[in-house]
Amino acid sequence: MSDIDDLVAQLAREAAPVQPAPHPLMLSLQWMGAAAIYLTVTLAVSGLRPNLPEHLHSPWFVAELVALLAVFIVTSISAALLAFPDLHQRRRLALAPVLFFAAFLLVMLYAWQADNPPAPLPVHSFECTVSITLMTLLPALWSFYSLRKYASTHPGLTGGIALLSAFSVGALWLRLHEANDSIAHVIEWHYLPMLAIGFIGLWLGRRLLKW
């Protein structure tokens, strides 16, 4: 009997009934639901920005929120697809975040142009990045813990996308909490750090999502 036959016999003996993993859309819905609860609770504790009602009449603010929400939804779906070895045979959908990030970038560029005369810069700077990062920790831990139960064949990309998804929750929270109108500040301290977060996610994914 060859080694392969031995191994096949051994694996077959270990073949207990297995519960198939949930569909990636269900998985991403679970994450989105949990993130919605988390966002609601944190906003209830920290409070909404006082000028939110009037800002909801500003088309670029609404466009920014919608684009950020879309990034969060698409990255959640993409991370869930990437958790499966074959991306659940939905490769295009798994790579959709690229398009949505491009759309988000475009929205921010237009919002920056529309910010004329520019709103005054707030006195703080990096504190926003730190706050978003702290808010990101819990969703990031949860998504990595959840992703480790699957079998990603793109661990780096999965980690990067999952961390960006978690970071977008933190970014949404801060935009709804902080009374700040300076787009330059928002781009510099809220969204540019996303690049670094993506790379950190890539690195973490390669280490934590091995199987």
Binding site: L7, L11, V18, P20, Y150, A151
Partner: peptide, 13 residues
């Protein structure tokens, strides 16, 4: 083959 065994829950048939 071991990887297939470990990841079989990610295949739904």
């Amino acid at each position: 083959l071991i990887s297939v065994h470990k990841a079989r829950h990610t295949y739904d048939g």
